[in-house]
Each structure stands twice: as structure tokens, then as C-alpha cells.
Amino acid sequence: MDFRLTDEQEMLASEVAKLLAATCTGADLRRLLESGEAIDRGRWGQILVMGLPGVMGPEEAGGAGLGAVEMALIATACGYAALPEPLVEHAGVAVPMLAAAGADLEKALFGSRIAVGHPVNPLVADADSAAALLLAVGDDVHLVQRAQVTLTRHDSIDPFRRLFAIDWSPTPGTRIGGAALWAQALDHGALFAAAQLLGLAQRAVDMSVVYTKDRVQFGKPIGSFQAVKHHLANAQVKIEFARPVILAAAASPGSVRVSHAKLAATAAADAATHAAVQVHGAMGFSWEGDLQFLLKRSLALGQAWGTPAFHRARVAGHILSAPLGADRTFDAPASEEGRREAA
């Protein structure tokens, strides 16, 4: 039993964070917004150079062969930066789906993006810039080329969420899997949404700490007022107790803990972004500040990949049927193989 990240994992997380701190500032986000483009070519290029799309790809296919823990760390860094590009769903959901289905991975690992139309989500994110899509017909998973579908955009309050309704008809030969593949996708989608929520929650607190040190009222930095401190301390408590749940869920993705992780991260992001808006005063409500990007992403991801009601129902199913108790902390299947065996 050892609940610590390895040095390699810590290093990976810090390298991704460093890249995004340098290339995904508030000014970068606003520039992309004004350009109307889906993707910042320069930043996406560096993400490819780091090999991030292939983190969970099998080594024999040219991926890094890493697991959900590494991907969760990357997703946390993406959330922290409010990264607009859809790296997380591609690398954390689509690539493992293709790998599990035995589909050709080469293009997906080196830049051709795959969008995921999971039945749990009403719309498909980032379908316009994708090369192909994974779409549902009943329980079946189909891999469909972008040219085979018609897209209708639905605007999200998050200006970087590009959501689409898809019009298409399945053709023979596009089916690559069934319900088990969607189940795996849901676990990954929910887990990495949780990791992004964790990252953006911490960013909202960090941004607020900086702001409340600078902003002076009544002759003092507002951060010296206890009411302001306690808003942020409460949010930090929620963050601290979401993080280990996400890591443990990543270490055993088939377990009900994924739902716990999603719920805990949603609550933490909710608490953190709302506290952040409050301690920023009117600035927190304005278009001018960068906080809006975090608040909007939190609103979207909290409901994507299973709403809180959906995940609570999964937790209820577990606690009403499984044996519970102090000796049960780690008896979920410990690996994806374990999960497959259990299934």
C-alpha cells in the first residue's frame, strides 16, 4: 500500500502545468476567442510534441502506455489552465476506446482528433475540429469520419465549449464495439471531467488569493478580513478531500469511486468558483476578469459525463447492495484488468 505519486508522475504533472502556464494565459484565451478559431495552432503543436494525446495509448501502437492516474494529473493541469483545446476527451476517452476496440490508433495518437458522442451527453463537444467521431446507435459504438456527419452548433455560455447536434446515418462497417466500450468511456469521461474540475477549483482559489492580497479596502488588503479568508478556506477544504478520491478512482477506474470523484469535484469547483466570484466583488461578475472562464467551465463540466443526480444514483446502488465498512476502503478492483475480470 503506497498512496503517493511516483517522481515520474509528479514530473509529468509539473511539465504539463509549466507548458500551459506559458501558453494558456488569460490573454491567450482572449486572443483565441477573438480569432473565432477552435484551436490555437501553436499551443496544440506543443501539446502534440509532448505526446499528450498518446498518454493512454498502448506502447506497441506508439503511445506512452501510461494509465488513468497520469491522465488524471494531465486533466487537472488542463482544468487549472481552462485549456480550450479538447485534449482531455481525446486522450482520456477516445484513445482508450479505440485501443480497447482494437482500432487503428496511429492518426489519433499524432494529432487527428476524435470527438466522443456518448449517450450520457446530449450534445457532442468539439465535433467541428475532429477528424472522426465515436457515435452511438443503441448500445453500439460507431467510428464515423467527419465528412459523413452534418453538424448543428448550439452555443454554450462557455465560449470554448463547441457543442453540436449530429445528423448522420450508420453504415455497415463503422461499428467498433458495444455497451462495454460505452461503460469504459463513461468512467473515463466522468473521471477526467472530475480531474479538470479539481484543477479549475484550485485555480479559482489561487486567483482569488492573489486578488485579495492586492485589492485594498478600508485601508487594508481585503484578504486580511476573516470573512474573506473563510470563504476561500472552505473551498480549499473541499478541494483537499476531492483530490485523493480522484486519484484513488484513477487507480481503479471501474469502481463506484468514479462517481464519488465526480460528485466531490463538482462540489469543490462549485464552492471554489462561487467563493471566487464573491471575493472578487463586481470584478468577479465582469467580462474583464479571467474568473469567468473557470466559472463557465465548472458549470458545464459539473453536468457533463453524468449529472450529480446520475452519479448519486450510482453511489446509492453501491451502498445499498455492496458490503460496507472500515475494511472495504480498497476492495474495488485495483486495475483495469481487474475491472474486466470482474465484469
Binding site: F3, E240, P244, V245, T329
Partner: peptide, 24 residues
């Protein structure tokens, strides 16, 4: 029911956090 689930999840989160601290 939602409160019961919250209590169970919080106990789980606390256990995980303490395992992490103990490992460190």
C-alpha cells in the same frame, strides 16, 4: 438519502486522505 450518501462518501474521502498522509 442524499445526506446518507454524502456521509458515506465523506467517510471514504477522509479515509483516502489519511492513507495519503500516512504514505507521505
Amino acid at each position: 438519502g442524499a445526506e446518507v450518501m454524502q456521509a458515506w462518501m465523506d467517510a471514504d474521502a477522509y479515509a483516502l486522505s489519511i492513507y495519503a498522509t500516512a504514505s507521505r
